[in-house]
Amino acid sequence: MAQIVASNVQKVFKTADREVVALKDIDLEIARGEFVCLLGPSGCGKSTLLNAVAGFSLPTGGVITVDGKPVQGPGPDRGMVFQEYALFPWMTVAENIAFGLQVQKKQKAEIAATVSQLLEMLNLKDFRDRFPKDLSGGMRQRVAIARVLALDSPIMLMDEPFGALDALTRRNLQDELLRLWERLGKTILFVTHSIEESIYLADRIVVMTYRPGTIKRDQRVDIPRPRDPSGHAFNELKRELGRLVMEEQQRHADDEMKLAAVD
């Protein structure tokens, strides 16, 4: 049975002088343990959909359920990794990872054990007492992933988590994420605008349209892992998805020109 179900989801943002339909008629089912990427240009509503699943911003129509229960707000059963890391800068690496567990009032010894294990798992041992300002972007994102893993939530939501990283660090963290996913069996919903990233990572890629955000294509990726980005099947799919995404990107660009002309 599907773990995350979105049925007929709408999201309308109202501003003083206009309405923007960010999401329209979204029907999506994600199975337990599945790795799904939401792919599209900026403005396609992929982050809006993710935030709706996270419970930060509820849909204006339709319903999203997780394990059969409607989403009504944010919660530790759906851990979120943000593009801006969102680590608490006044806490050390270890304190950041421990925070979610302290919130759940876990025993001290249990917290210490989980934190040590995660520091080990994400190669952060030498950084446990550092503050986030002393870490590189890649290291910060490792801490953010560890912080979410500490919650032991079945679902991980990731909002362009590697978007701000350089290409090499990015590949490195993608591999690490895949390793963790295979080992821990989490369900991952991952937002990206990188076609290559989505093909490298996902079981399924959901391509979204530019305003209103609808599902343009629900694409299964059957290339066996580890995937070779220079392989034939990879590039075939890249070309195909590239065509779909660029159509939407073009609509986005046209729209921006129009808005600029009005102003």
């Binding site: 930060f56 919660g75 530790p76 979120m80 608490f88 925070f99 919130v103």
Partner: peptide
């Protein structure tokens, strides 16, 4: 706001949000 969202995501109540997030962020 990103700290507030991260904190809510980790399941904080209002008191914890205030003492462990808002207060240190404002120091």
């Amino acid at each position: 706001g990103i700290y507030l969202r991260a904190a809510y995501n980790l399941g904080v109540n209002q008191w914890t949000l205030f003492t462990r997030v808002i207060l240190p962020a404002a120091t």
